[in-house]
C-alpha cells in the first residue's frame, strides 16, 4: 500500500475519531473545576493522620499502597522480560568478538574534562537521588523518582569512564539480586502489617514527628526506600542489558 493511500485512509478515519473524542471531552466538566471529593478528603487528612506532608506520596504508599505494589511488579516483570529477550541473542554472537581487533574500530579515549565532570556528577546525582527517595513524604519525590535519578547517576560512570571500569562496577547478577530484594521487601513490609493484626499494607510502624521529617509517615518511608532500591536496580539492569552489545566491542581497547 503506497504512502499516499495510507495517509488518505488515515485522514478518512481520523476525522470522525477526532469529532467523537471532542464531543466526549465536551461532556466532561471544564478543566479548572476538577478534583473529586475523595481528593478533598485525602488533602484534609494526609498531613494530620499520617504525618506525611506530600499527599501524593501518602496516596501512593499508604492509602493506595496495593496499587503501587502492582505497579512495582509491572516494572520488575518488564525488566525481566527485556533481559530474557536480549540475553538470548547476545549469546549467539559472542564468537564474533575475537575477530574485532582492527585498528580503526577503537573508540577514542575519553578526555580528562569529561572524566572529571563525570566524577563530580556521579556523586552529586546519586546523593540527590538518595535525598529524593528518603524525603518522599516531606517534599515532592518518592521512591520511583529517586530510583530513576540514582540509575542515571550510575550511567554517568559509563559515559565518563571506560568500559572496563563500568563492567567491573556493574555486574548484572548483583543488581538483579538487589532489584529482587527491593521488590520482595515491599511485599514483606506489607506482610508485617498482617503480623501486627491489621490489614495488608496498613500503616503499622509508629508515625514520627508531626511537621514531616525523614522519620515520619510510618511505613510510607519504608516502602519509599524499598521502591527506590527496586527501581534504581531495575533501571540499571535494563540499561546494562541494552548496553551489553556496545560494551563487548569496546573491551579490546
Amino acid at each position: 500500500m503506497s504512502d499516499r493511500a495510507r495517509r488518505i485512509i488515515f485522514f478518512v478515519g481520523a476525522l470522525p475519531l477526532a469529532a467523537l473524542l471532542v464531543l466526549a471531552c465536551l461532556r466532561l466538566p471544564p478543566s479548572g473545576r476538577g478534583g473529586s471529593s475523595y481528593g478533598d478528603v485525602i488533602n484534609g487528612a494526609a498531613a494530620d493522620e499520617r504525618h506525611a506532608a506530600d499527599a501524593v506520596t501518602a496516596v501512593n504508599f499508604d492509602y493506595r499502597a496495593f496499587d503501587t505494589l502492582g505497579e512495582e511488579f509491572i516494572l520488575f516483570t518488564s525488566v525481566m522480560g527485556v533481559v530474557l529477550l536480549l540475553r538470548r541473542s547476545s549469546e549467539d554472537d559472542t564468537e564474533d568478538d575475537t575477530d574485532d581487533k582492527s585498528a580503526n574500530r577503537q573508540a577514542p579515549p575519553t578526555s580528562d574534562a569529561v572524566r572529571a565532570l563525570g566524577l563530580a556528577l556521579v556523586g552529586l546525582t546519586v546523593s540527590f537521588g538518595l535525598y529524593i527517595v528518603t524525603h518522599g513524604q516531606v517534599s515532592p519525590g518518592g521512591g520511583f523518582q529517586g530510583g530513576v535519578i540514582i540509575a542515571t547517576g550510575w550511567m554517568v560512570l559509563y559515559l565518563a569512564g571506560n568500559a572496563q571500569t563500568y563492567c567491573r562496577l556493574a555486574s548484572p547478577s548483583l543488581f538483579e539480586a538487589v532489584e529482587a530484594l527491593g521488590a520482595a521487601s515491599y511485599a514483606l513490609v506489607g506482610a508485617g502489617a498482617l503480623v501486627a493484626g491489621m490489614a495488608y499494607l496498613a500503616n503499622y510502624v509508629p508515625l514520627g514527628p508531626t511537621p514531616s521529617t525523614v522519620r515520619s509517615g510510618g511505613t510510607i518511608a519504608l516502602l519509599s526506600v524499598a521502591v527506590g532500591i527496586e527501581v534504581s536496580a531495575g533501571f540499571i539492569v535494563l540499561i546494562s542489558t541494552f548496553l551489553k552489545e556496545a560494551l563487548a566491542e569496546r573491551q579490546d581497547q
Binding site: 506530600d54 501524593v56 506520596t57 529524593i132 515532592p140 519525590g141 518518592g142 520511583f144 523518582q145 530513576v148 535519578i149 540509575a151 542515571t152 550511567m155 533501571f235 535494563l238 540499561i239 541494552f242 548496553l243 556496545a246
Partner: peptide
C-alpha cells in the same frame, strides 16, 4: 511529583534506551 517522574523518565531514561 509527576513533573519529577516525567523529567527523569521521559527526558533521560527513554532517549537513552532509544539511542542504545
Amino acid at each position: 511529583d509527576v513533573a519529577l517522574a516525567q523529567a527523569t523518565v521521559g527526558a533521560v531514561a527513554l532517549p537513552l534506551m532509544v539511542l542504545l
